[in-house]
Amino acid sequence: MVISIIEFAVIVILLLGRSTKHDNKRSRIKQQVKSEGDIDFGNIVNSAFGAEALYKELIRKCHPDRFAPDSEKMAIANDITERLGKNKNDIKKLNELKVEAIDKLNINL
């Protein structure tokens, strides 16, 4: 009986006496990440099925080599292509880039 009580006391002391420094850091990170705002799940689900095809089409139509004679358009195409690579899995961003490409590069999509 005495041994059981001692064991229980040791367990309680160990549980309560754990260092809180590490826990504080973890909670801080958790709070920071949770406060980042809502996640657009609709965009994620749509991207899973539509992003790849749209990316392939855009990257083909906006390739800088297609605008070689016009240096201004070539620079814009370079910029768009770079951003396409960064957002290849985000259909919302790809649609924005599509509008920009149609507007600035006069391409037919």
Binding site: I29, K30, V33, K34, E36, G37, I39, I44, S47, A48, A51, E52, K88, N89, D90
Partner: peptide, 19 residues
């Protein structure tokens, strides 16, 4: 792999999943 990559490309979602 495409479906996985879409999930992993969303930094906010990955961070939220981890924490």
């Amino acid at each position: 792999v495409n479906i996985g990559n879409v999930i992993l490309a969303n930094d906010t979602l990955v961070r939220r999943l981890v924490v």
